[in-house]
Design a protein around this nucleic acid. Sequence first.
DNA 1: CTTGGCACTCTTGTATTGAGAGTGCTAAAC
DNA 2: GTTTAGCACTCTCAATACAAGAGTGCCAAG
Lengths: 340, 340
Amino acid sequence: MVGLTERQDQVLAFVVQEYVENAQPVGSETLRRRGLGVSSATIRNELAALEELGFLMQPHTSAGRVPTEKGYRYFVESLMDEFELPLVEQRMIRHQFHQVTLDIDQWMRLAAAVLAHSSHGAALVTAPQSEHCRFKHLQLIAISDQVALLVIVLYEGTVKQQMLALAQPIEQEDLMRVSNRLNDYLGGRNGEQIRALAIALSAFESDVVRIVAEVMRQVDARSSQDVYRDGMMDILRQPEFSASERIQALLEMLEQRSLLEAMLSEFAPARGVHVVIGSESQRDEMNDFSIVLARYGLPGEATGVVGVLGPVRMQYARSIGAVRYVAGLLGDLMARMHGR
Amino acid sequence: MVGLTERQDQVLAFVVQEYVENAQPVGSETLRRRGLGVSSATIRNELAALEELGFLMQPHTSAGRVPTEKGYRYFVESLMDEFELPLVEQRMIRHQFHQVTLDIDQWMRLAAAVLAHSSHGAALVTAPQSEHCRFKHLQLIAISDQVALLVIVLYEGTVKQQMLALAQPIEQEDLMRVSNRLNDYLGGRNGEQIRALAIALSAFESDVVRIVAEVMRQVDARSSQDVYRDGMMDILRQPEFSASERIQALLEMLEQRSLLEAMLSEFAPARGVHVVIGSESQRDEMNDFSIVLARYGLPGEATGVVGVLGPVRMQYARSIGAVRYVAGLLGDLMARMHGR
DNA sequence: CTTGGCACTCTTGTATTGAGAGTGCTAAAC
DNA sequence: GTTTAGCACTCTCAATACAAGAGTGCCAAG
């Protein structure tokens, strides 16, 4: 890519900032007032050049300029100031996390809330998962004569529960014995190993094992995975979504959890903050949106994704800062939970 | 309330049905074509009378008529045909419930999905709760050296989990012992009793008891209660919400879970299906909506609420049928789970 | 009590117009 | 060579006007 002149950089940066702020095509006069030391005519020349190069476009002949995706991309890569979350905000966030109980579910909720709040976009968070989850512990608890609760704890920290119908009443004592026995057999194994396990079990025990295997299969397939979401409202307030079909398209996408899940994994292959702008995602339904996301967690063991979804006209610096900080924080918390 | 003539009943019913279907003010000519055996002029007279009586209104001088809330109310009370969910649909729904695991959480999700689907509105469901929840069982599970998982099961079937940080490592064996000991002490008690409990406990044990009490307090206060929702999208497709401020108002309300919770309990005091139309709710934010809901469960023990939220121009018969059926079904399922 | 007829009202869609914003280009100034 | 003032041009947007259509209310006759 050919380099732009310093002034072109400056003009492009101003256009992006101005447009992000006001959602209105920005003209030469506005730009001049913004403080470049040259006349509007000069700026018009630069604007024409930037348009020629594909960084800007005009919605129609006599409107101001709007950044193209290429323009945003260049802005994010080369023009944008690094943005760290203000220290006060960082402290506040840390504080909130320490106040909440040590529960993955709650962490995810809080992460989404915090992210939505500080990025002014829609936050998306997935719980940490490893390639193949490993069994840690199960516990059977009598609920009534005919029903028992099966709690399954995975090494990743995920806790799944499942009720099961009992053919005949079983005492809590016996359930405990079964739990202990199965824990000995299953501890540390992954789903595949458990499915392949060939040991002598009672009918009830093998029922339980089958359920455990099924649950772990679901977790592995991420099919049961929830995407924690927050801040949907903020995004609707953006002027580009005042048309109701667009709102619908957006909401429909956000409802489709499976789609979100797939996207999140696809766009955040490794650690670090990734930015996907509009149609770069190669997905039609994302054409009007950008997403900033990062993988967090213990690489190789268990990782999840945090991200911010917003209009292409998004506050990238702010979002990137927020995502980076929250990802780091969640990573620390996980490390601590796993006792490292 | 003075009775209407038979023909007025018929005209009003037609207006409601027609308007519910097409969302357009309905005029005398449309009504005549619908099959009353009289001319449009006669119908106009009846319409004028119904307007005089407050059952109908005109959006403007020369438009058709639209039902008022009073009109809908009369329709629901006196004019509407009883509507039972078709047997095929009933069977399909039952089938779905039997396919799913015996898990309250899953039931609620499914109930919301089913309700949304068959009412074409937004479904709202709350999990069963009793006045004062009672402790059934707890289980401590070692996650790492520094963290244990506390699973709390309540008589109502609710399962809550909470991680807790350990000051020092505790063996799974010891955790088991603590669990057993506390189960003996706490079994069957409600939150208040647990808070008042004065027995000799280790520091760790009393930590656990304190957490249990806190969780139960939250459950009692319904502050942690989730409202299961589904079908938000359908409601947005209604023409009355094409204006984006209205969509926002709606979504904002649906996001406010605490508000929903409060409303649901308020409007479904006892068993049976309740219908609240528009401003009857005395809540400004509900002015444009109606809600059909029913309390389900084991009265006196544990009950929840299922409901359908939609525009005032809602298919009441259909919604009432769906809500009634799902409420009954959930009640049966709960009874079975509690082994009655 | 019902109905045909008719004038009247109000909305809605379309066409027209003028103001405003912003551009591109040219020619002069630096 | 770059910058700038000037100006004609283009396009949007809001306001206005107008015609068509839907529906009403009312009167007088059946």
